[in-house]
Design a protein around this nucleic acid. Structure first.
Length: 816
RNA sequence: GCCGCCGUGGUGAAAUUGGUAUACACGACAGACUUAAGAUCUGUUGUCCGCAAGGACGUGUCGGUUCGAGUCCGACCGGCGGCACCA
């Protein structure tokens, strides 16, 4: 009578596939529900138990929605293009194109075994030309709408992956993929203008229903600062230095200026600089420094004064020195700052080192010279001429106006570097024609950004630009993709003039593939079909890892906004609701191969069955929190499922399921459980939903009579969690159709509400007794009953009661 | 440094949002069944005092608000995540 999960699981996998149990009715549906889980990238031997954890959590939610009458679309695919998979192929010495087919089989098999209700017919892989045709089409739309451009800029270069990276893919100076220290290189690259949507990306965070921690990460990343832009004249020249500051109120304290070493003015005024040799060697040195070195050396700032140049402080009219220093970043603001050492820690440190003047201009009355550290607090203005005594906040805009500056908002966010010098990705569908460039022609020559002469998008009829099979696919490291050595790939005709032209050989970032896949699932032949999009998107519920907070989740939002403005979709947020699942760890540490603590889910499925693994994963901690995978604890779940199995099978065999009436206690418990499980699954509190089912089963076992209805309810409530076993039991009770298409039970609210409760009796706030009374009892009566209790009589003794606190339907507290 | 989250039994964790702290499990201990092991079932299981009834203490630490604090406020200690020379 044992639960033979191996044969049972196989049986239902087939049944579900043949009966299309999890395929929605795309055209006719009235209640669509798009339940999406971040698709995996096959970059390892197979699915990690952490992936399983995430997928199961998403599946449970979708299964309940389906049973609640929604037509649930829960697709699956593989994010198999890009650096993740390519690096894996490199590691095991396989060709990524061939390895993809191997991974595909393996991953899909595992995803089926775990028992998720996927719509298999709509699956997709990002490396399928059918798919990346549209990735390329999207690139072209971005180009045509001025959102894709080329520019030469200092960019992140990973020496081990041998490609450039977006800022989002550099995690504290290291490559997100391989953890190598990232270098800076001056290269011409393709960018997507995500900064055009900075404000909207930030603002919409207030209206979308997303996990708070992801919103916070995005807010930090976008990094909005409000301030002013102010110009400083360079003495005896026609040049001006524009700075951005969040503290224009401290302008009177600006005693020097600092330019980033890359600042364009330095080259322009080269002839005026007296110590050019020194300056030029400083610039050289800072160019060579890696991000990490720059961060590490941040404690000791360096810089050189531009001798022969002076600037004018527009507030005081004073002549102040100009320095260059690499603590000023070229990529933020204007690449130049006004230094206010008295009120900025960095400027203070620099001023102290190079003996530059410090002038206090803000004080709360306690700020006195000489300062030990910068005073960054609030206060009133001092040493600021006619503005002395003004509050710093209102002084900000008074000063800005006075020196003809303007209010400005700066973002930390920078444009998305989209090109990669790698093989395994969607070729960027662009063509460069030198002939056209010479004639000043190009598809986007009006663009605000320069460098676009001679560039044309591949005509849409020529899509996809297929990635050729290349034997020598290894990254070269010379700033170009391996495709740059494939002559019959890059030699093309100019789509405009027909002259010999060159195809772009870089491929696009993997994150472009995954930024639109939720649309791809709906209809890969015609993804931007208006009717389907309108009916099925945005995604109702999206679940995934928080590690994508500023990668995939930010890029997807950006693209949806761009699609919206191109009138391709009518919403601007792709995921109405997003929840980040927690991280699964092992023995207190993140699972990793080097630590040797990676849990292989297949072993557990083989040993205990997929249902046991599913329920265990969901039971160990709240889904959004994540937790510790422990071998010992899974046995508790195995016992629970076995007990349920035995209970149902023996009831069936003994015919112990007549229509007899359940006790009132059981009725109450049943309906409370329905409510609890429903609410808990809705809130992703799977651990407490499972414990409620355990309590119910414990009670079933104690009862002499449990009606067949209640047994059905138990199975229905457990179905999302343990889809195989419940399906088997469902059928063994004579049902012919899938339990997963059955109606979710509803509860009777009268039975959920108790009409009696344990009145807590406290004396001086300490519980001394409880007594069962009926709900709605008034204070007078409660007091009377309470005072009759032996324990209470004893505690009250002869003391006078000073005060009585009565909380309706909860407690009574006597103060003596 | 800034922003945010979290600290509850031996362990994973619960706690109608200010109202009986430790549900549900794991582990441990004891017992039943068994030749035995395993499986299963039944108890006990926060700490201390007590034969018991019962009592005291107890949610990282210290303080506060409150009739009442795991929950709210302040300071500190410890852990995690995001940003980080962003002017």
């Amino acid at each position: 009578m044992k639960y033979k999960f191996r044969t049972i699981e196989k049986k239902w996998q087939q049944f579900w596939r043949i009966k299309k149990t999890y395929e929605p009715n795309f055209k006719k549906t009235k209640k669509p529900f798009y339940n999406l889980m971040m698709f995996p990238y096959p970059s390892a031997e197979g699915l990690h138990v952490g992936n399983m954890y995430a997928f199961v959590g998403s599946d449970i939610y979708g299964r309940m929605k389906r049973m609640q009458g929604r037509d649930v679309f829960q697709p699956i695919g593989l994010d198999g293009f890009g650096i993740h998979s390519e690096n894996y192929a490199l590691k095991i010495g396989a060709h990524p194109m061939k390895q993809a087919k191997v991974s595909e089989k393996r991953f899909y098999k595992q995803l089926e075994i775990i028992g998720n209700g996927f719509a298999w017919e709509e699956r997709l892989e990002t490396y399928d030309p059918e798919y990346y045709k549209w990735t390329q089409w999207i690139f072209i739309q971005m180009f045509k709408n001025g959102l894709a451009y080329r520019k030469k800029a200092p960019v992140n270069w990973c020496p081990s992956c041998k490609t450039v990276l977006a800022d989002e893919q550099v995690v504290s100076g290291k490559c997100e993929r391989c953890s190598s220290v990232v270098e800076k290189r001056e290269l011409e690259q393709w960018f997507f203008k995500i900064t055009a949507y900075a404000e909207k990306l930030l603002e919409n965070l207030n209206i979308i229903d997303w996990s708070e921690r992801v919103k916070i990460a995005q807010r930090n990343w976008i990094g909005r600062s409000e301030g002013a832009s102010i110009e400083f004249e360079v003495k005896d020249t026609e040049y001006k230095i524009e700075v951005f500051t969040t503290r224009p109120d401290t302008l009177f304290g600006a005693t020097y200026m600092v330019l980033a070493p890359e600042h364009s003015l330095i080259q322009k005024l080269k002839y005026r600089i007296k110590n050019w040799a020194e300056i030029s060697s400083y610039i050289q040195k800072s160019k060579l420094e890696s991000e990490e070195e720059r961060i590490n050396e941040s404690k000791d700032k360096t810089g050189v004064e531009l001798k022969g140049l002076r600037a004018v402080n527009p507030a005081t009219g004073e002549s102040i020195p100009i320095w260059i220093a690499d603590y000023v970043l070229a990529g933020y603001g204007t690449g130049a700052i006004m230094a206010v050492p008295a009120h900025d820690e960095r400027d203070f440190e620099f001023a102290r080192k190079y003996n530059l003047p410090v002038r206090i201009v803000i004080s709360d009355g306690t700020v006195v010279s000489p300062l030990v550290r910068a005073y960054t607090g609030t206060g009133k203005l001092v040493n600021s001429g006619s503005l002395d005594g003004t509050d710093f906040e209102s002084a900000k805009w008074q000063i800005t106006r006075k020196v003809s500056g303007r209010r400005e908002i700066q973002y930390r966010l920078r444009d998305w570097l989209i090109s990669r010098q790698r093989y395994w990705g969607a070729p960027i569908p662009m063509i460069y024609c030198a002939a056209c460039a010479q004639l000043g022609k190009g598809e986007q020559i009006d663009s605000v950004q320069g460098g676009m002469l001679g560039w044309y998008a591949v005509p849409e009829k020529d899509l996809p630009v297929k990635l050729p099979f290349v034997k020598e696919f290894r990254p070269k490291g010379k700033g170009s993709s391996p495709l740059a050595s494939v002559k019959n790939f890059y030699e093309v005709k100019c789509p405009k003039c027909g002259a010999k032209a060159r195809r772009e050989t870089d491929v696009s970032d993997t994150f472009l593939d995954s930024a639109w896949y939720y649309i791809g699932y709906l209809n890969l032949k015609k993804p931007f079909n208006k009717t389907t999009i309108k009916k099925w998107s945005p995604v109702n519920m999206y679940i995934g890892g928080a590690e994508h907070s500023v990668l995939h989740l930010l890029y997807s939002r950006f693209l949806a906004m761009a699609f919206h403005d191109m009138k391709l979709v009518d919403y601007d947020e792709p995921f109405t609701k997003f929840r980040a699942h927690g991280l699964l760890i092992k023995e207190g540490a993140k699972m990793s191969k080097s630590k040797g603590n990676v849990v292989n889910p297949d072993e557990y499925i083989k040993k205990f069955g997929a249902d046991a693994l599913r329920v265990y994963l969901m039971f160990l901690a709240p889904f959004e929190q994540g937790g510790d995978f422990r071998d010992a604890s899974i046995l508790g779940i195995v016992r629970f499922l076995d007990r349920a199995w035995r209970y149902f099978v023996s009831c069936r065999d003994k015919g112990r399921t007549g229509g007899k009436k359940n006790t009132i206690e059981l009725q109450k418990l049943m309906h409370k459980t329905i409510k609890k499980v429903t609410d808990d699954i809705e809130n992703l509190h799977y651990n407490t939903a499972i414990s409620a089912l355990m309590v119910l089963l414990n009670e079933f076992e104690k009862q002499t009579v449990v009606s067949v209805d209640y047994m059905r309810y138990f199975l229905l409530l457990s179905a999302p969690l343990a889809p195989y076993m419940t399906e088997e039991l469902w059928h063994s009770f004579g049902n012919k159709t899938s339990i997963h298409r059955e109606k979710w039970p509803s509860y009777n609210s009268k039975l959920v509400e108790d009409n009696e409760f344990d009145l807590i009796i406290q004396i001086n706030g300490r519980v001394r007794d409880t007594v069962l009374v009926s709900k709605g009892i008034v204070q007078e009566e409660a007091e009377k009953i309470a005072r009759e209790q032996i324990m209470i009589k004893k505690w009250l003794g002869t003391n006078a009661i000073k005060r009585v606190i009565f909380v309706k339907d909860r407690l009574i507290n006597f103060l003596i």
